[in-house]
């Protein structure tokens, strides 16, 4: 759990307090904290003067607006057909081995979450993953080991 503090106010000052400001505000919270807590969503509702159900309704629609606990680095492995054909499972297995978690889980130190996702638009350089917003492409298990090692040092 994190304390959302002044972040909602800051984001509302930046993006406005219209209904159309809801997405950028929620995206801003996720960018900072990687997921939305109930407390954060209630705070957004207060700031925008809409019901918390409206905020949750919008948030729960979007895959990238997670409403359950996520680590500092959210790894999304593309599972759509081309990545799937070009070795997505090998990538997934090496990630599971390294992080000692299964798909959908978060490491106990809250550093990494491992998820699968639909097409991220790198089919010509499959297999591909996203770590937060950064894409990594043309992966091999060896490359994945190097990338994750770097993140572990951060």
């Amino acid at each position: 759990m994190y304390q959302v503090g002044n972040l909602v106010k800051e984001l509302s000052d930046k993006h406005g307090r219209e209904r159309a400001s809801l997405m950028p505000i929620l995206q801003g919270i996720v960018e900072r904290h990687n997921y939305l807590t109930d407390e954060a969503m209630v705070e957004v509702a207060k700031e925008l003067d809409i019901s918390a159900a409206e905020v949750y309704g919008t948030a729960s629609f979007y895959t990238f607006l997670d409403t359950s606990v996520r680590g500092k680095y959210v790894i999304r492995v593309c599972k759509t057909i081309t990545c799937s054909m070009k070795g997505k499972n090998d990538i997934l297995h090496i990630l599971e081995d390294m992080l000692k978690i299964k798909v959908g889980e978060t490491t106990s130190d809250r550093q990494f979450s491992l998820l699968e996702t639909n097409c991220i638009g790198w089919c010509h350089k499959a297999p591909a993953i996203l770590i937060n917003e950064m894409p990594y492409t043309e992966l091999t298990p060896e490359k994945v080991v190097e990338i994750i090692k770097d993140y572990m040092k951060k």
Binding site: T80, I81, T82, N118, C119, G121, W122, C123, H124
Partner: peptide
């Protein structure tokens, strides 16, 4: 919002 599997031209 290019999401169709196999499309990456807009990016």
């Amino acid at each position: 919002d290019e999401g169709e599997p196999g499309t990456f031209k807009d990016r």
